[in-house]
């Protein structure tokens, strides 16, 4: 349904060209969930914003970048083409519901505005639809809530409202950019459940962005791990967790504190910091931080390939194989 081929998003800045997304390709089928995982600055947010044209004017796309949506090419350089899909066929949920909602408009007005604009519904119809939507995202007393303002709602309810707005026009693809990072753990689980339920009911495709492998573990069909503007490992979820090949994925995994571990277990961390995207290191971009790196890693960039049953990784000396002699 969605095909992204060789997406390059570069920002032209005073320091030089920031290669925020540098050659990313993936496909997403109807009804599937893709989890995109990476540290901040890995380009995961820029990646999905590129799809919706939500980037500043300094962003430039590479020449070979091709996006296909529902079998047709989608010109992400054209505002008109994007206006056809965004908010409608592709909707987005943001990290912080406090800033993504308009504080001076009632919840209902924010939902119906989208319904009127995209679907041409009128007052009463739109309101009924809005009530149904609010109800469907699990907000109790929908009829009362619809006339409230965002500041009268808790963080969890606000995020539910943001989801209701995103779902208003029956999108085919829902992009959730760290939808639970700003929320408590208990609320996080509820919101993730809600997203999964809505997705199943509506047969939507979903892209779930997070920095926490734990969040996508039970919820995504496929996982793509991003590092420094590239996808470094991609596999069906179960495969990935069973058999991590890219040392970076492994390192992300090791950084998560485990409930089953005894108290005060030191965590295995990745040294160093993500590279400067103006001047990324040659070869494999993870090499300077990688415990398994050899000279080949700094000389040649590993392609994203390999693995059986859809498991791909960009590494010369993957985990589980002996390193260089």
């Amino acid at each position: 349904m969605l095909t992204v081929s060789n997406l390059r998003t570069h920002f032209h800045t005073g320091r030089g060209i920031v290669r925020a997304v540098d050659g990313v390709s993936f496909n997403l089928a109807r009804g599937r969930t893709l989890g995109i995982v990476g540290e901040s600055g890995s380009g995961k947010t820029v990646l999905v914003r590129s799809l919706l044209g939500l980037l500043p004017s300094t962003a430039k796309f590479g020449g070979e970048t091709e996006i296909g949506f529902e079998g047709r090419p989608l010109d992400i350089r054209s505002e008109t083409a994007l206006n056809q899909v965004r908010g409608r066929a592709i909707a987005m949920v943001f990290q912080d519901p406090m800033t993504s909602l308009n504080p001076v408009m009632t919840v209902g007005a924010q939902i119906t505005e989208s319904l009127r604009y995209h679907l041409g519904l009128t007052g009463g119809e739109a309101r009924e639809r809005a009530v149904a939507l609010i109800d469907s995202v699990g907000i109790p007393m929908a009829r009362q809530r619809i006339d409230q303002h965002p500041h009268q709602l808790s963080g969890g309810l606000r995020q539910r409202v943001a989801i209701a707005i995103a779902l208003a026009c029956e999108p085919k693809l829902l992009i959730a950019d760290e939808p639970t990072t700003a929320l408590d753990v208990t609320i996080q689980a509820e919101i993730l459940d809600l997203l999964a339920r809505q997705q199943a009911e509506r047969d939507m495709a979903m892209i779930l962005i997070t920095h926490d492998l734990g969040v996508v573990a039970g919820r995504a069909d496929d996982i793509a791990v991003m590092y420094a503007g590239r996808i470094v490992e991609r596999a069906p979820t179960a495969r990935l967790f069973a058999n991590m090949r890219m040392p970076y994925t492994q390192a992300l995994m090791n950084a998560i504190p485990r409930l089953e571990a005894p108290p005060n277990t030191p965590l295995r961390t990745i040294g160093g910091r993500p590279p400067d995207l103006v001047n990324p290191p040659p070869g494999c971009r993870f090499a300077p931080r990688c415990p398994r790196a050899e000279s080949r890693c700094t000389d040649h960039e590993p392609p994203l390939e390999g693995g059986e049953s859809g498991h791909r990784f960009a590494c010369w000396y993957p985990v589980g194989e002996p390193g260089a002699a």
């Binding site: 920002f11 800045t13 005073g14 820029v46 939500l54 962003a59 965004r86 989208s114 604009y117």
Partner: peptide
Amino acid sequence: MSRSIHGFERRARVAEAVASSGARGAR
């Protein structure tokens, strides 16, 4: 203009602030 678009723009402005250091340099 649609509310969702409005939210997008606000977000886009955040992103712009992120990338505007360069535009500043050029000016």
